[in-house]
Design a protein around this nucleic acid. Structure first.
Lengths: 259, 259
DNA sequence: GGGACCGGTTCAATATATGAACCAACGGTT
DNA sequence: AACCGTTGGTTCATATATTGAACCGGTCCC
């Protein structure tokens, strides 16, 4: 691993639950020497990628991300595009809709939309990391990812988050075959009990999978009619979003019941 | 310069006018060897900090910034806080208001708000880089920055953007003395002709200057009464924002006519 | 077919990163 | 108040990662 990769990997230890990290903690988390971590953080700090908190001397993510994220959005307005499509999709289905995109080996939620129609709704967190084996979005991605990517994802330990979480790689692979055939992934209660979600993959200009768009609803609301509606709308808006982002469907991808 | 700093400095070559850069161009821009640039970009790409465009093979900013900016905002909601204060400030003054923050040696606009009151308004760009010598925000920051920082800023070549741009370091230093006394910077037509702006510095928890909040109005509208209103509101909201962000005013800072 | 680009690769020379040991400072315990 | 286990930060000989000239093969334009 190059020095740059090491430095940037430090940033991955920040999350919602741990917004600031001390030098020694960071050294422990990363397994690197304290002096090394210190030097890397100092360099990141000089560029505004991390900064030290006023009170303690802990490090946290820096202000440079505001500027760079704005520039990224100016260059590639994926988030804006996703937000527009999600607003329509959640309005049409009366459920929570979200888009998650691959970033290296992880799947990150980049945008979501709630429907105001029901009192109960599935809640989402911005910038949440999704696992592959127990979310509909994750399965949708795995089904269309390169075999070597899928192998790596399923070789990792698979957390049993709920009673219904499937953790047997062989059975997951069998499910992926169905997903490839139907062009749509489902997951009932595998991530959160009582949540039934559907997801369709998204593709880039080279027809490679880049993420997924999903609708998550309380299991109690998932009548056959509602499911039919969700699947129909999801296919339609997934295709729309892929096209908006300049992507193409891979050969043989089933658009199915889509408009 | 360490390897990490070199890699991150490549990201600074992206901007609104140049959202994607080829390998050879990047090598020229940065003055580094093509092989070096390639290795650095490859490492940045593995972490999602840059990606290659579908069509050409140019590099552009990657999706990682969406996630990290969201986490930064979750940890330090400066942008949200600024947006709220700016909405009030622009409503009270009927003019464009914006907040710019220091990031290393540059001043970046992170948020702004327009007033719907007038047909003409001063337009802003998100993530715009402000110069120090010919913007009210820049002058407000320089006046309260460490002497060594100010020296560095004024030692650089000072662009004469308009007829009215002051480019004489000695005269600028004299203006800074006044700004330190009044706690407010002004700039009339030095950045854009026909724009008269006022700015007040913002401070962090250690009473160090971190940026400025400003109101920009067409010169034609700047009557004495309007100016008095703007100065009053600006002082009030600057203090409010500094406090919201957990900052403190340095000893002797004039709150002046503020509420 | 030639020439000038492009993105990307190679490998010996060398500049850079690394980590054990070391500070000084802080906060709690005895 | 001496002790202990922390903390963030520093040092310097060692070792490892970085560097850059030259070199690909491809593509575009004459």
């Amino acid at each position: 691993m190059g020095t740059v990769a090491k430095a940037l990997s430090l940033l991955d230890f920040f999350n919602r639950a741990r917004p600031a990290i001390g030098l020694s903690d960071m050294a422990r988390l990363s397994g690197m020497n304290k002096a090394t971590v210190h030097r890397l953080l100092t360099e990141l700090q000089a560029q505004g990628f991390v900064e030290q908190t006023g009170s303690g001397r802990e490090y946290r993510l820096g202000p440079a991300f505001l500027r760079l994220a704005a520039l990224r959005e100016a260059a590639v307005p994926m988030r804006d595009l996703a937000a527009g499509v999600l607003a329509d999709l959640s309005a049409a289905t009366h459920e929570t809709a979200h888009v998650s995109l691959l970033q290296g080996d992880t799947l990150i939620t980049v945008a979501f939309a709630y429907s105001a129609h029901h009192g109960t709704r599935v809640a989402m967190d911005d910038a949440e990391v999704l696992t592959f084996h127990n979310t509909s979005s994750g399965l949708a991605v795995l089904a269309f990812a390169p075999a070597e990517f899928t192998d790596r994802a399923l070789a990792r330990p698979l957390e049993k988050r709920t009673d219904k979480t499937e953790t047997d790689p062989a059975r997951i692979r069998a499910a992926l075959t169905d997903i490839r055939r139907s062009g749509m992934a489902q997951n009932e209660g595998g991530f959160e009990a009582d949540v039934h979600s559907h997801a369709v993959p998204l593709f880039d200009a080279r027809a490679r999978v880049i993420g997924a768009i999903a609708v998550a609803a309380p299991t109690a609301r998932m009548t056959p009619d509602h499911q039919t509606l969700i699947q129909h709308e999801l296919r339609h808006h997934a295709l729309r979003l892929t096209r908006l982002m300049g992507g193409f469907l891979p050969d043989g991808f089933l658009v199915g019941a889509a408009a």
